[in-house]
Amino acid sequence: MLSMLLRRLGLGAITVWLVSLIIFAGVEMLPGDACTAFLEREAKGQLLENCRIELNLNRPAAARYLDWAGHALQGDLGVSANGQRPIAELVGFRLRNTVLLASGAMLFGIPLAIFLGIIAALRRDKPLDIAISTVAISAMTIPEFVSATLFILIFSVWLGWVPGIVLVSADAPISAFFPVIFLPIGVLTLVMTAHILRTVRSSVIETLASDYAQMATLKGVPFWRIVFRHVLPNALLPTINVVALTVAWLLGGVVVIETVFNYPGLGRMMIDSISDRDLPVTQAIALIIASVYVGVNLLADILTMLANPRLRTLHLRKG
């Protein structure tokens, strides 16, 4: 058990390290650097030279990578090229806003997905299941910017319930985000629910067909008891991993949704930083998102292991 955990942790750490290498190499590939972007037309001669010395850009790439990675490990993400402000300070509020958005979607999405998934499974191939599954597939496959625009059209243009655009600054208190945040949360919830409920549905159907569920039926155990005692605990296990993958998607897919709603989160900051060639900020955001992705997946693996006795002793049986 412990060795398995350590192995997972080690693999996760290696992945994050490789990601940092990829990010650094990717940003190195970009034409120009933070100085040419910052100085724009004045980027020549002594001025450029001074700026490069100031930002340590004249040193070899390997040394700069070690420097950057070392500081990032200590939580120091460097200084933004444009605003000359510490990135940790800039990113902090944005990260909070994105987490607010994502956790709102999870709060509604996960229970809703489990509920609808179970209903769809129990009513398999009946009109209700077909309706739920069709909506889910559409929600999953339609691009996020389409569903987001549709939400704005319906709920803010036609019904006029909530504003369609978020006009709150990044460092505003959380209370300022209500009620405008409900629309982006709604879109995220829709897509997330669709992904999770598909897994819940197929997993419940599979478990209902298992020997022990059949056995319980034959013994005369009441139906709701079979569902809640025998089927659900087993059926919900694969859900943990899908939730993790969905959360990871949430952090990437949120980029588009944040742009549509003008929401001041991490995703929009990433797009802005790439367009502005603010390389230190791009690197920092990429590293944060990748670390969260690896972390959430690791957490899901551990939770699945803890919740599933069979996996807990897998290494014993393998010898």
Binding site: L11, I14, T15, V16, L18, V19, L21, I22, I23, G26, V27, M29, L30, P31, A248, L251, G252, G253, V255, V256, M270, I271, I274, S275, R277, T282, I285, A286, I289, A290, Y293, V294
Partner: peptide, 22 residues
């Protein structure tokens, strides 16, 4: 597989944008 995992843990849009901007 580790390299593949590392690539997959970055959001698609970030990877695409870096190349497109370049």
């Amino acid at each position: 597989m580790r390299i593949v995992d590392a690539f997959l843990s970055l959001p698609w849009i970030l990877k695409m944008l870096v190349l497109i901007v370049t």
